[in-house]
Design a protein around this nucleic acid. Structure first.
Lengths: 199, 199
DNA sequence: CGACCCTAGACGACCGGTCAACTATTTACT
DNA sequence: AGTAAATAGTTGACCGGTCGTCTAGGGTCG
Protein backbone atom coordinates (compact mmCIF):
# COMPACT_ATOMS: atom_id res chain seq x y z
CA UNK A 1 0.00 0.00 0.00
CA UNK A 2 2.81 2.42 -0.68
CA UNK A 3 5.45 3.39 1.77
CA UNK A 4 4.97 4.07 5.45
CA UNK A 5 5.95 7.02 7.63
CA UNK A 6 6.02 8.28 11.17
CA UNK A 7 5.69 11.87 10.02
CA UNK A 8 2.07 12.16 11.06
CA UNK A 9 2.83 11.19 14.64
CA UNK A 10 5.90 13.38 14.71
CA UNK A 11 3.76 16.34 13.64
CA UNK A 12 1.19 15.65 16.36
CA UNK A 13 3.89 15.31 19.01
CA UNK A 14 5.66 18.49 17.95
CA UNK A 15 2.39 20.39 17.91
CA UNK A 16 1.49 19.30 21.42
CA UNK A 17 4.82 20.37 22.83
CA UNK A 18 5.06 23.67 21.00
CA UNK A 19 1.44 24.69 21.27
CA UNK A 20 1.28 24.21 25.03
CA UNK A 21 3.95 26.87 25.40
CA UNK A 22 3.28 29.14 22.45
CA UNK A 23 -0.43 28.88 21.86
CA UNK A 24 -2.20 28.54 18.54
CA UNK A 25 -1.97 31.79 16.62
CA UNK A 26 1.63 32.64 17.29
CA UNK A 27 2.74 29.16 16.28
CA UNK A 28 3.31 28.71 12.56
CA UNK A 29 3.02 25.61 10.46
CA UNK A 30 6.61 26.12 9.38
CA UNK A 31 7.81 25.97 12.97
CA UNK A 32 5.86 22.81 13.67
CA UNK A 33 7.31 21.21 10.56
CA UNK A 34 10.83 22.21 11.53
CA UNK A 35 10.51 20.62 14.96
CA UNK A 36 8.95 17.48 13.51
CA UNK A 37 11.55 17.37 10.73
CA UNK A 38 8.82 17.24 8.13
CA UNK A 39 8.79 19.34 5.00
CA UNK A 40 5.96 21.79 4.74
CA UNK A 41 4.67 20.13 1.60
CA UNK A 42 4.22 16.88 3.52
CA UNK A 43 2.19 18.60 6.19
CA UNK A 44 -0.82 18.97 3.96
CA UNK A 45 -0.53 15.37 2.86
CA UNK A 46 -1.39 14.34 6.42
CA UNK A 47 -3.64 17.15 7.60
CA UNK A 48 -6.29 19.25 5.97
CA UNK A 49 -5.30 22.36 7.86
CA UNK A 50 -3.53 23.70 10.90
CA UNK A 51 -6.88 23.61 12.69
CA UNK A 52 -7.34 19.91 11.92
CA UNK A 53 -3.87 19.13 13.24
CA UNK A 54 -4.69 21.09 16.38
CA UNK A 55 -7.73 18.91 17.05
CA UNK A 56 -5.57 15.82 16.64
CA UNK A 57 -2.94 17.24 18.96
CA UNK A 58 -5.61 18.02 21.55
CA UNK A 59 -6.91 14.46 21.26
CA UNK A 60 -3.42 13.04 21.70
CA UNK A 61 -2.80 15.29 24.71
CA UNK A 62 -6.01 14.24 26.38
CA UNK A 63 -5.53 10.57 25.58
CA UNK A 64 -2.22 10.74 27.41
CA UNK A 65 -3.59 12.78 30.29
CA UNK A 66 -6.79 10.76 30.55
CA UNK A 67 -4.75 7.70 31.42
CA UNK A 68 -3.50 9.58 34.48
CA UNK A 69 -7.03 10.57 35.38
CA UNK A 70 -8.52 7.12 35.05
CA UNK A 71 -5.68 5.24 36.71
CA UNK A 72 -5.53 7.59 39.68
CA UNK A 73 -9.28 7.99 40.10
CA UNK A 74 -10.21 4.34 39.67
CA UNK A 75 -7.41 2.94 41.83
CA UNK A 76 -8.17 1.25 45.12
CA UNK A 77 -8.36 3.16 48.35
CA UNK A 78 -10.46 6.01 49.74
CA UNK A 79 -12.00 8.28 47.09
CA UNK A 80 -10.46 11.42 48.54
CA UNK A 81 -7.01 9.83 48.47
CA UNK A 82 -7.50 9.02 44.80
CA UNK A 83 -8.53 12.59 44.05
CA UNK A 84 -5.59 13.97 45.99
CA UNK A 85 -3.21 11.75 44.06
CA UNK A 86 -4.64 13.00 40.76
CA UNK A 87 -4.13 16.63 41.76
CA UNK A 88 -0.63 15.82 42.99
CA UNK A 89 0.09 14.30 39.61
CA UNK A 90 -1.14 17.42 37.83
CA UNK A 91 1.09 19.60 40.01
CA UNK A 92 3.99 17.23 39.43
CA UNK A 93 3.54 17.59 35.66
CA UNK A 94 4.01 21.34 35.88
CA UNK A 95 6.99 20.97 38.19
CA UNK A 96 8.55 18.56 35.71
CA UNK A 97 8.24 20.80 32.66
CA UNK A 98 9.61 23.70 34.66
CA UNK A 99 12.69 21.65 35.51
CA UNK A 100 13.01 20.28 32.01
CA UNK A 101 12.37 23.32 29.87
CA UNK A 102 12.56 26.19 32.34
CA UNK A 103 8.97 27.31 31.87
CA UNK A 104 5.64 26.34 33.38
CA UNK A 105 3.57 25.82 30.27
CA UNK A 106 0.23 25.22 31.93
CA UNK A 107 -2.50 23.06 30.48
CA UNK A 108 -2.81 22.80 26.70
CA UNK A 109 -6.57 22.42 27.05
CA UNK A 110 -7.01 25.50 29.19
CA UNK A 111 -4.67 27.56 27.06
CA UNK A 112 -6.53 26.71 23.87
CA UNK A 113 -9.93 27.08 25.54
CA UNK A 114 -9.29 30.74 26.23
CA UNK A 115 -7.52 31.42 22.95
CA UNK A 116 -9.80 29.60 20.54
CA UNK A 117 -13.27 29.17 22.00
CA UNK A 118 -14.52 32.25 20.15
CA UNK A 119 -12.49 31.51 17.03
CA UNK A 120 -12.24 27.86 16.08
CA UNK A 121 -15.52 26.03 16.57
CA UNK A 122 -14.04 22.59 15.88
CA UNK A 123 -11.41 22.98 18.59
CA UNK A 124 -13.90 24.57 20.96
CA UNK A 125 -16.35 21.69 20.58
CA UNK A 126 -13.69 19.09 21.28
CA UNK A 127 -12.42 20.97 24.31
CA UNK A 128 -15.93 21.19 25.68
CA UNK A 129 -16.30 17.42 25.39
CA UNK A 130 -12.98 16.82 27.09
CA UNK A 131 -13.73 19.09 30.03
CA UNK A 132 -17.13 17.45 30.40
CA UNK A 133 -15.31 14.13 30.57
CA UNK A 134 -12.93 15.47 33.23
CA UNK A 135 -15.83 16.80 35.28
CA UNK A 136 -17.69 13.50 34.98
CA UNK A 137 -14.62 11.59 36.19
CA UNK A 138 -14.29 13.86 39.22
CA UNK A 139 -18.03 13.74 39.89
CA UNK A 140 -17.94 9.93 39.97
CA UNK A 141 -15.15 10.07 42.52
CA UNK A 142 -17.12 12.55 44.61
CA UNK A 143 -20.02 10.10 44.62
CA UNK A 144 -17.65 7.46 45.97
CA UNK A 145 -16.47 9.85 48.65
CA UNK A 146 -20.04 10.64 49.65
CA UNK A 147 -20.80 6.92 49.90
CA UNK A 148 -17.75 6.53 52.09
CA UNK A 149 -19.02 9.38 54.23
CA UNK A 150 -15.91 11.51 53.77
CA UNK A 151 -17.79 14.36 52.12
CA UNK A 152 -21.43 15.45 52.50
CA UNK A 153 -23.82 14.03 49.93
CA UNK A 154 -24.85 17.51 48.80
CA UNK A 155 -21.27 18.12 47.66
CA UNK A 156 -21.24 15.11 45.35
CA UNK A 157 -22.57 16.97 42.32
CA UNK A 158 -21.42 17.84 38.84
CA UNK A 159 -21.29 21.54 39.72
CA UNK A 160 -18.97 20.84 42.63
CA UNK A 161 -16.82 18.73 40.33
CA UNK A 162 -16.75 21.63 37.90
CA UNK A 163 -15.65 23.96 40.68
CA UNK A 164 -12.81 21.60 41.53
CA UNK A 165 -11.61 21.53 37.92
CA UNK A 166 -12.10 25.30 37.57
CA UNK A 167 -10.03 25.88 40.68
CA UNK A 168 -7.34 23.59 39.27
CA UNK A 169 -7.28 25.40 35.93
CA UNK A 170 -7.22 28.78 37.63
CA UNK A 171 -4.26 27.85 39.81
CA UNK A 172 -2.43 26.37 36.84
CA UNK A 173 -2.97 29.71 35.12
CA UNK A 174 -1.32 31.50 38.04
CA UNK A 175 1.52 28.98 38.02
CA UNK A 176 2.09 29.70 34.35
CA UNK A 177 1.81 33.46 34.79
CA UNK A 178 4.37 33.45 37.57
CA UNK A 179 6.37 30.62 36.03
CA UNK A 180 6.32 29.08 39.48
CA UNK A 181 4.90 25.60 40.07
CA UNK A 182 4.88 26.05 43.84
CA UNK A 183 1.64 27.98 43.39
CA UNK A 184 0.07 24.53 43.07
CA UNK A 185 1.16 23.50 46.57
CA UNK A 186 -2.10 24.89 47.94
CA UNK A 187 -4.21 22.96 45.47
CA UNK A 188 -5.28 20.16 47.76
CA UNK A 189 -6.22 21.98 50.99
CA UNK A 190 -8.45 24.37 49.09
CA UNK A 191 -10.00 21.54 47.12
CA UNK A 192 -10.85 19.86 50.42
CA UNK A 193 -12.63 23.02 51.47
CA UNK A 194 -14.58 23.07 48.21
CA UNK A 195 -15.75 19.58 49.05
CA UNK A 196 -16.81 20.53 52.54
CA UNK A 197 -14.59 17.73 53.79
CA UNK A 198 -12.81 19.77 56.43
CA UNK A 199 -15.97 20.42 58.40
CA UNK B 1 1.58 72.72 19.01
CA UNK B 2 0.24 71.12 15.86
CA UNK B 3 -3.12 69.44 15.80
CA UNK B 4 -4.70 67.27 18.45
CA UNK B 5 -6.30 63.90 18.24
CA UNK B 6 -8.26 61.35 20.21
CA UNK B 7 -6.74 58.59 18.12
CA UNK B 8 -4.61 57.27 20.96
CA UNK B 9 -7.59 56.68 23.22
CA UNK B 10 -9.62 55.23 20.39
CA UNK B 11 -6.83 52.75 19.73
CA UNK B 12 -6.71 51.69 23.37
CA UNK B 13 -10.46 51.27 23.54
CA UNK B 14 -10.62 49.27 20.33
CA UNK B 15 -7.78 47.04 21.47
CA UNK B 16 -9.49 46.24 24.76
CA UNK B 17 -12.73 45.27 23.09
CA UNK B 18 -11.21 43.26 20.27
CA UNK B 19 -8.46 41.59 22.23
CA UNK B 20 -10.77 40.27 24.91
CA UNK B 21 -12.57 38.25 22.26
CA UNK B 22 -9.80 37.49 19.78
CA UNK B 23 -6.66 37.31 21.84
CA UNK B 24 -3.30 38.82 21.01
CA UNK B 25 -1.71 36.93 18.16
CA UNK B 26 -4.72 36.52 15.94
CA UNK B 27 -5.55 40.20 16.22
CA UNK B 28 -3.75 42.38 13.73
CA UNK B 29 -2.77 45.99 13.98
CA UNK B 30 -4.79 46.66 10.83
CA UNK B 31 -7.96 45.37 12.46
CA UNK B 32 -7.41 47.47 15.55
CA UNK B 33 -6.87 50.55 13.41
CA UNK B 34 -9.99 49.85 11.36
CA UNK B 35 -12.14 49.58 14.48
CA UNK B 36 -10.58 52.71 15.97
CA UNK B 37 -10.88 54.54 12.63
CA UNK B 38 -7.23 55.36 12.72
CA UNK B 39 -5.01 54.99 9.71
CA UNK B 40 -2.43 52.30 10.08
CA UNK B 41 0.37 54.74 9.48
CA UNK B 42 -0.68 56.68 12.56
CA UNK B 43 -0.39 53.69 14.82
CA UNK B 44 3.33 53.94 15.34
CA UNK B 45 3.13 57.61 16.01
CA UNK B 46 1.18 56.82 19.17
CA UNK B 47 2.67 53.48 20.21
CA UNK B 48 6.08 51.94 19.96
CA UNK B 49 4.70 48.57 19.08
CA UNK B 50 1.68 46.32 19.26
CA UNK B 51 3.07 44.97 22.51
CA UNK B 52 3.25 48.46 24.02
CA UNK B 53 -0.34 49.15 23.02
CA UNK B 54 -1.35 45.87 24.62
CA UNK B 55 0.16 46.93 27.92
CA UNK B 56 -1.77 50.20 27.71
CA UNK B 57 -4.98 48.37 26.89
CA UNK B 58 -4.43 46.05 29.84
CA UNK B 59 -3.90 49.05 32.09
CA UNK B 60 -7.07 50.71 30.82
CA UNK B 61 -9.03 47.49 31.29
CA UNK B 62 -7.81 47.06 34.85
CA UNK B 63 -8.31 50.72 35.71
CA UNK B 64 -11.95 50.32 34.73
CA UNK B 65 -12.36 46.99 36.48
CA UNK B 66 -10.45 48.05 39.54
CA UNK B 67 -13.07 50.69 40.21
CA UNK B 68 -15.63 47.88 40.49
CA UNK B 69 -13.33 46.00 42.82
CA UNK B 70 -12.57 48.88 45.13
CA UNK B 71 -16.09 50.27 45.26
CA UNK B 72 -17.67 46.89 45.97
CA UNK B 73 -15.02 45.68 48.38
CA UNK B 74 -14.67 48.89 50.38
CA UNK B 75 -18.39 49.64 50.60
CA UNK B 76 -20.18 49.50 53.93
CA UNK B 77 -21.74 46.33 55.22
CA UNK B 78 -20.52 42.85 56.11
CA UNK B 79 -17.30 41.79 54.37
CA UNK B 80 -18.83 38.66 52.90
CA UNK B 81 -21.67 40.69 51.41
CA UNK B 82 -19.14 42.98 49.76
CA UNK B 83 -17.26 40.03 48.32
CA UNK B 84 -20.48 38.46 47.07
CA UNK B 85 -21.45 41.70 45.37
CA UNK B 86 -18.10 41.85 43.60
CA UNK B 87 -18.46 38.32 42.28
CA UNK B 88 -22.03 39.08 41.23
CA UNK B 89 -20.73 42.07 39.33
CA UNK B 90 -18.12 39.94 37.56
CA UNK B 91 -20.80 37.44 36.55
CA UNK B 92 -23.06 40.27 35.45
CA UNK B 93 -20.30 41.59 33.19
CA UNK B 94 -20.13 38.30 31.32
CA UNK B 95 -23.91 38.10 31.09
CA UNK B 96 -23.95 41.60 29.64
CA UNK B 97 -21.43 40.98 26.88
CA UNK B 98 -23.22 37.79 25.96
CA UNK B 99 -26.45 39.72 25.50
CA UNK B 100 -24.73 42.57 23.70
CA UNK B 101 -22.38 40.77 21.37
CA UNK B 102 -23.57 37.17 21.52
CA UNK B 103 -20.37 35.80 22.97
CA UNK B 104 -18.95 35.37 26.44
CA UNK B 105 -15.51 36.86 26.02
CA UNK B 106 -14.12 36.07 29.43
CA UNK B 107 -11.52 38.14 31.22
CA UNK B 108 -8.95 40.01 29.15
CA UNK B 109 -6.40 39.54 31.90
CA UNK B 110 -6.88 35.79 32.13
CA UNK B 111 -6.94 35.38 28.36
CA UNK B 112 -3.68 37.25 27.92
CA UNK B 113 -2.09 35.57 30.93
CA UNK B 114 -2.36 32.18 29.29
CA UNK B 115 -1.53 33.37 25.81
CA UNK B 116 1.40 35.66 26.54
CA UNK B 117 3.05 34.76 29.84
CA UNK B 118 5.70 32.70 28.05
CA UNK B 119 5.98 35.11 25.13
CA UNK B 120 5.74 38.79 26.05
CA UNK B 121 7.60 39.58 29.26
CA UNK B 122 6.31 43.15 29.46
CA UNK B 123 2.67 42.05 29.35
CA UNK B 124 3.35 39.12 31.67
CA UNK B 125 4.94 41.39 34.27
CA UNK B 126 2.03 43.81 34.24
CA UNK B 127 -0.51 41.00 34.50
CA UNK B 128 1.34 39.58 37.46
CA UNK B 129 1.15 42.94 39.22
CA UNK B 130 -2.55 43.26 38.49
CA UNK B 131 -3.42 39.81 39.77
CA UNK B 132 -1.36 40.47 42.89
CA UNK B 133 -3.43 43.61 43.37
CA UNK B 134 -6.67 41.65 42.96
CA UNK B 135 -5.51 39.05 45.44
CA UNK B 136 -4.51 41.73 47.94
CA UNK B 137 -7.92 43.38 47.64
CA UNK B 138 -9.66 40.09 48.31
CA UNK B 139 -7.27 39.24 51.13
CA UNK B 140 -8.05 42.54 52.86
CA UNK B 141 -11.74 41.75 52.66
CA UNK B 142 -11.11 38.28 54.07
CA UNK B 143 -9.36 39.92 57.00
CA UNK B 144 -12.44 42.03 57.59
CA UNK B 145 -14.61 38.92 57.44
CA UNK B 146 -12.41 37.15 59.94
CA UNK B 147 -12.61 40.15 62.27
CA UNK B 148 -16.38 40.03 61.93
CA UNK B 149 -16.26 36.35 62.78
CA UNK B 150 -17.97 35.24 59.57
CA UNK B 151 -15.00 33.17 58.42
CA UNK B 152 -12.29 31.41 60.43
CA UNK B 153 -9.11 33.40 60.97
CA UNK B 154 -7.01 30.68 59.32
CA UNK B 155 -8.92 31.31 56.07
CA UNK B 156 -8.02 35.00 55.98
CA UNK B 157 -4.77 34.52 54.06
CA UNK B 158 -3.31 35.55 50.73
CA UNK B 159 -3.32 31.93 49.53
CA UNK B 160 -7.03 31.63 50.22
CA UNK B 161 -7.59 34.90 48.38
CA UNK B 162 -5.61 33.49 45.48
CA UNK B 163 -7.77 30.38 45.48
CA UNK B 164 -10.88 32.57 45.32
CA UNK B 165 -9.54 34.46 42.32
CA UNK B 166 -8.30 31.26 40.67
CA UNK B 167 -11.71 29.70 41.09
CA UNK B 168 -13.27 32.81 39.56
CA UNK B 169 -10.91 32.76 36.58
CA UNK B 170 -11.44 29.04 36.08
CA UNK B 171 -15.20 29.38 36.03
CA UNK B 172 -14.98 32.35 33.67
CA UNK B 173 -12.92 30.12 31.39
CA UNK B 174 -15.69 27.52 31.40
CA UNK B 175 -18.26 30.22 30.75
CA UNK B 176 -16.27 31.37 27.75
CA UNK B 177 -15.68 27.84 26.49
CA UNK B 178 -19.39 27.03 26.66
CA UNK B 179 -20.43 30.54 25.71
CA UNK B 180 -22.81 30.31 28.63
CA UNK B 181 -22.71 32.83 31.48
CA UNK B 182 -24.99 30.72 33.68
CA UNK B 183 -21.90 28.69 34.54
CA UNK B 184 -21.12 31.56 36.88
CA UNK B 185 -24.30 31.06 38.88
CA UNK B 186 -22.44 28.65 41.15
CA UNK B 187 -19.64 31.09 41.79
CA UNK B 188 -20.75 32.30 45.20
CA UNK B 189 -21.75 29.09 46.98
CA UNK B 190 -18.44 27.47 46.10
CA UNK B 191 -16.54 30.57 47.12
CA UNK B 192 -18.25 30.38 50.50
CA UNK B 193 -17.01 26.82 50.84
CA UNK B 194 -13.47 27.92 49.98
CA UNK B 195 -13.72 30.38 52.84
CA UNK B 196 -14.94 27.78 55.27
CA UNK B 197 -17.92 30.04 55.95
CA UNK B 198 -20.55 27.36 55.54
CA UNK B 199 -19.30 25.36 58.49
C1' DC C 1 5.96 80.72 8.66
C1' DG C 2 8.26 77.63 11.47
C1' DA C 3 7.44 73.79 14.45
C1' DC C 4 5.30 70.02 15.39
C1' DC C 5 1.42 66.39 14.78
C1' DC C 6 -0.17 63.23 12.04
C1' DT C 7 -0.73 60.03 7.92
C1' DA C 8 -0.23 57.68 3.33
C1' DG C 9 1.84 54.18 1.37
C1' DA C 10 5.15 50.87 0.95
C1' DC C 11 8.58 47.67 3.09
C1' DG C 12 10.39 42.88 3.64
C1' DA C 13 9.15 38.97 6.14
C1' DC C 14 6.15 35.56 7.05
C1' DC C 15 1.44 33.46 7.05
C1' DG C 16 -1.47 29.17 5.87
C1' DG C 17 -2.04 26.69 1.97
C1' DT C 18 -1.32 24.55 -3.03
C1' DC C 19 0.67 21.84 -6.50
C1' DA C 20 3.05 18.98 -9.84
C1' DA C 21 6.89 16.17 -10.18
C1' DC C 22 9.18 12.59 -8.02
C1' DT C 23 10.71 8.49 -5.11
C1' DA C 24 9.94 4.51 -2.47
C1' DT C 25 7.23 0.67 -1.23
C1' DT C 26 3.51 -2.53 -1.41
C1' DT C 27 0.37 -5.55 -3.90
C1' DA C 28 -1.46 -8.38 -7.68
C1' DC C 29 -0.67 -11.06 -11.27
C1' DT C 30 1.97 -13.88 -14.03
C1' DA D 1 10.41 -15.16 -8.38
C1' DG D 2 9.83 -11.37 -11.35
C1' DT D 3 7.58 -7.46 -12.62
C1' DA D 4 4.49 -3.76 -13.34
C1' DA D 5 0.80 -1.12 -11.77
C1' DA D 6 -1.04 1.13 -7.88
C1' DT D 7 -0.40 3.49 -3.83
C1' DA D 8 1.70 6.36 -0.17
C1' DG D 9 4.97 9.58 1.04
C1' DT D 10 8.31 13.43 -0.08
C1' DT D 11 9.88 17.56 -1.93
C1' DG D 12 10.62 22.49 -2.87
C1' DA D 13 8.91 26.14 -5.48
C1' DC D 14 5.23 29.13 -5.22
C1' DC D 15 0.60 31.59 -4.30
C1' DG D 16 -2.06 35.69 -2.59
C1' DG D 17 -2.58 37.81 1.50
C1' DT D 18 -1.40 39.77 5.94
C1' DC D 19 2.00 40.65 9.43
C1' DG D 20 4.34 44.44 12.30
C1' DT D 21 7.04 48.32 11.19
C1' DC D 22 8.95 52.62 9.26
C1' DT D 23 10.05 56.72 6.54
C1' DA D 24 9.09 60.66 3.86
C1' DG D 25 6.18 64.20 3.48
C1' DG D 26 1.56 66.60 4.03
C1' DG D 27 -1.58 69.18 7.37
C1' DT D 28 -2.44 72.32 11.13
C1' DC D 29 -1.48 74.74 14.76
C1' DG D 30 0.74 78.83 17.65
Amino acid sequence: MGRTSTARDRLIDATGELMQRRGYSSLGVAEICAKAEVKKGSFYHFFESKQALTVEAVNAYWNAERSYWTTELTATGPALDRLRRLLDTMAQLQRRTKETSGTVDGCLLGNLALELSTQEPAVQARLEEIFDEQIALVAATLNDAADEGTIPHERATATTARAVVAHLEGLVMFAKLRNDPTVLDDLWPHTLLLLGAAC
